[in-house]
Amino acid sequence: MRILVVEDMPDIAKAIAQRFEKIGHAVDCETNGRTAGEVLLVQEYDLIILDMMLPGADGFEILKALRGRKNKTPVLVLTARSAVDDRVDVLDLGADDYLTKPFDFRELEARARALLRRSAGMSDNALHFGELVIDQAGRTASVSGMPLDLTRRELIVLEILAARPKRFISKEELVEQLFNFDQEPSANAIEQYVTRLRRKLADTTIEIRTTRGLGYQLAIK
């Protein structure tokens, strides 16, 4: 997927680019706000990672212009300001998520992945499958209104399965989605998550089926 990083600190931009290139995304970097705005007029991206304090035009202007054009590309905002600072809420301006500097690069990667998953066809932030509802912004899931207590990884597994309910999802695909670049990927761990998910879904109408050789599939009992 194609990612635009708008960040005027060269080291930060470089570190972000390196991380996303290693997991197989194409990354463009822009250091000037005005240039970034112009690039966005002609080029489509799957994700924009946007710093707020920029030379040329600041992140607020870029975000406003983007959403003004009804462009729905997910935007992850990086800000040096604190959440308690007096400022316009970036989420109100149309950002999809934000991180405060200094941030953990693994967290940036995880959030970016979540946004990329969401952009794959979803119009609103809720995933529906049968009686299962996954609130992607609120990071909660429920079946027939009963909330499921899930760990973050269990939620991601369920989210990936629910996003493409017709398809079989292979263990390798889940490994790729679930682990950061710098973590030891493990197929055993995936099996554990699926086992725990099955236990938590036991009393509901939703189940996870396994088909040997193909992978996992979400189904209604």
């Binding site: 600190m9 080291d11 930060i12 470089k14 200094p102």
Partner: peptide, 8 residues
């Protein structure tokens, strides 16, 4: 944040 990027 820059220091953190260096570490990364």
């Amino acid at each position: 944040a820059e220091l953190n990027a260096q570490v990364e």
